[in-house]
Design a protein around this nucleic acid. Structure first.
Lengths: 117, 117
DNA sequence: CCCGTACTACGATGCCTATCGTACGAGTCG
DNA sequence: CGACTCGTACGATAGGCATCGTAGTACGGG
C-alpha cells in the first residue's frame, strides 16, 4: 500500500503542556529507559520496539516503553504489527530548551567513563 | 569559637567519580527534592535543613536530604546543631557540563508555566 | 482461513520508597 | 547541670514499580 496506514488503535499521549519535568526525570532515571532514549537520539528516527535487544522479557519492555510514552519522552504509533517509537524532541526542546541535549551528553560522558558502549 | 568547627560526626558522601547520572535524575524526580535544589541554587550558598519549610514531617525531610546527599547532588556538614547543605555544583558541572543549569532552567520554566513561585 | 509475528493485558511477586510517630543523641545557652 | 533545639534512628505502613509468566489481540501473508 502507499501510505503506511497508521492503523486504527492508537495510544494515549500527554499533550506538550501536560509534560512534567519530574515525570521526564523519573522516566530517564532507569538505566534501561535511558539506554532506549540514547539509541533513539542516536539514530534520529523512529524505531520499532523489537529493534531493541534488552535484557528483560517483552512484558517488561512494553512496560518501559509505556513509561516513556506516558511521561512524554517518546511518541508511539502502530504501523502494521510494529509499534514505532520516536523521541518527542521538538516538544521537549520547546518546553525545556537545552535539557535533552544536556541529558544525552551527560549519558554519553558517563558511558565513556565506565566500560559502557 | 573562631572556626565554625565542623564537629566530629560526619556523613558519607559519594566521591565525584561515584556519582551516577541515574541517581541524580532519580533524586531530582521528586518534587520536594527538586524544590530543595532550586532553593539551594537560588541562594548559591549553604542552607540549614530547618531553613526549608516543607509540607512533611522532620523525619521525612531528613530522608529527602539523605537521598540528595547519597546521590551526590548536595554535600552536608554539621556546624553546631545545624546541618548545612550545599549544592555540589563543581562536581556536577565537572561530570556533566551544562546539565545542572539546564535542569534548573527547566524547573524554573515549569514553575512559571504553572502557578508555582 | 489459518498461522506466525508483534505487542498487550492481567495477575503475582518482591523490592524500593515516601510517609509518619516516637524515642534518642549532639550541641548550645542559661 | 538542665532545658531546649536540631536533626537522627528505627519501626511501621502503604503505595509504587520492575520483573516475570501466561494468555490474548491485532495485523499481514500464504
Amino acid at each position: 500500500m502507499t501510505s503506511p496506514a497508521v492503523s486504527s488503535r492508537d495510544l494515549p499521549h500527554p499533550t506538550r503542556e501536560e509534560i512534567r519535568l519530574e515525570g521526564v526525570l523519573h522516566a530517564l532515571s532507569d538505566p534501561l529507559r535511558l539506554q532506549i532514549v540514547r539509541e533513539l537520539a542516536a539514530v534520529g528516527d523512529e524505531l520499532s520496539c523489537s529493534h531493541f535487544d534488552l535484557p528483560v522479557t517483552k512484558s517488561t519492555t512494553t512496560h518501559h516503553f509505556r513509561v516513556l510514552r506516558e511521561s512524554g519522552v517518546i511518541q508511539q504509533v502502530y504501523r502494521g504489527t510494529a509499534k514505532m517509537n520516536g523521541l518527542r524532541k521538538d516538544d521537549l526542546d520547546g518546553l525545556f530548551p537545552g535539557l535533552l541535549d544536556a541529558l544525552l551528553d551527560a549519558a554519553t560522558r558517563q558511558a565513556a567513563r565506565f566500560g559502557g558502549a
